[in-house]
Computed example of a mutant assay.
Amino acid sequence: MKILVCGATGFVGHHFTAALREAGHTVIRGIRKPSQPDDIAVDYCKDTTKEAWLPKLAGIDVVINAVGVLRDSVKQPMALLLEQTPIALFSACQEAGVKHIVQISALGVDKGIETAYFQRRRAPEAYLNNLPDSISCLILRPSVIYGDDGASAKMFRFLAQLPVHGLPAGGNQRLQPVHIDDICAAVNRWLADTNAHSQTVAAVGLEATDMRGMLDSYRQQLQHSQALHINIPAFIIKLSALMGDVIPASPLCSDTLTMLNAGNTADSAAFTQLLGRPPKSYQTFINRGLA
């Protein structure tokens, strides 16, 4: 199939591109600055209408939207990147005859947490759920995604290697890390299924843990002895989040703290069925080369 991957230079989109090509698909990278013969120029800050997308979808069988941003900013406004432009793209897909759409959303979007990030993520999901049956849609809601080259994975590996772990509010925040390889494999398997139907799936790892457990496991996989744990009081984390509200580059702000404290876990049964096997455990993520 001919597949357009939007956000192909990002962490998730880059892995999708490689996995889909390995499976024999023709992948068109939708990126801001094309550099390869099969690239096309897309800009989520400018291509905000159906009319802007229609010429880009000629001959496309599948569209994968892997564009995402965690913080709102002037250069990367959530209103466009997470809501208006994806909806314009999906509207164009319907008119252009695209057969399949894959939307990378976020775990917890349906929990009623009123952060700007979750609010913007809900609208494209609602739009896809109202498309006719002639288009099959896969909405994946991943937990924290691990990949050796991922920015968050690099950060967590660095923290895990420190002899002292400063744990925000004790590190009890629940999460269920999922490996990028499993996400790519699940999408490839769904596309290969001639009877694939529209579905929304929580993309999570084999089991849940908490921040402390994840860092301890990563440290063990990196072949280090047990770290010293120090609790960082909740009021200090809240203060840091308030400071992050005025620093766009900071990954920690009031909204991200709210989402972190709300937990990021789900039953893995649906993802196991989609994948055709149990997903990987966070306890086996780190390969020996990195260790």
Results as ranks from 00 to 15, higher is better:
Arg212Gly: 01
Ile3Pro: 04
Asn172Asp: 08
Gly171Met: 05
Val201Phe: 09
Thr258Asn: 09
Ala92Met: 10
Ala169Glu: 00
Phe11Val: 05
Asp255Pro: 06
Gln119Met: 11
Ala151Phe: 09
Thr85Ile: 00
Leu191Cys: 02
Asp110Leu: 15
Gly276Lys: 14
Gly205Trp: 06
Ser136Gly: 09
Tyr44Gly: 14
Val5Ser: 10
Arg277Cys: 05
Asn65Asp: 05
Thr48Lys: 12
Gly166Cys: 15
Val204Cys: 10
Gln36Tyr: 12
Pro34Val: 10
Thr284Asn: 07
Trp190Asn: 11
Arg277His: 13
Ala123Cys: 11
Val178Ser: 01
Pro163Ser: 04
Ala106His: 08
Ala153Pro: 01
Asp72Leu: 03
Gly13Asp: 01
Ala58Cys: 12
Cys45Pro: 04
Asp245Thr: 03
Pro278Val: 08
Ala227Trp: 00
Ile286Glu: 00
Glu114Asn: 06
Gln36Arg: 15
His165Glu: 08
Ile135Ala: 05
Asp182Glu: 03
Ser198Thr: 12
Asp133Gln: 11
Arg122Ile: 13
Ser105His: 11
Val5Asn: 03
Leu260Arg: 12
Ser225Gly: 14
Val102Tyr: 02
Gln173Ile: 04
Asp245Asn: 12
Gly170Leu: 08
Thr209Gly: 07
Ala186Gln: 02
Ile183Asp: 08
Leu80Tyr: 03
His15Pro: 13
Lys2Glu: 10
Cys45Phe: 08
Trp190His: 13
Tyr282Val: 04
His15Arg: 11
Ala88Glu: 02
Asn188Ser: 03
Ala262Leu: 10
Leu20His: 01
Met155Asp: 11
Ser225Trp: 09
Leu257Asp: 04
Tyr282Ile: 06
Tyr146Trp: 12
Ser91Leu: 06
Val12His: 04
Leu140Tyr: 08
Ala185Thr: 00
Ser268Asp: 07
Arg29Val: 07
Leu206Met: 07
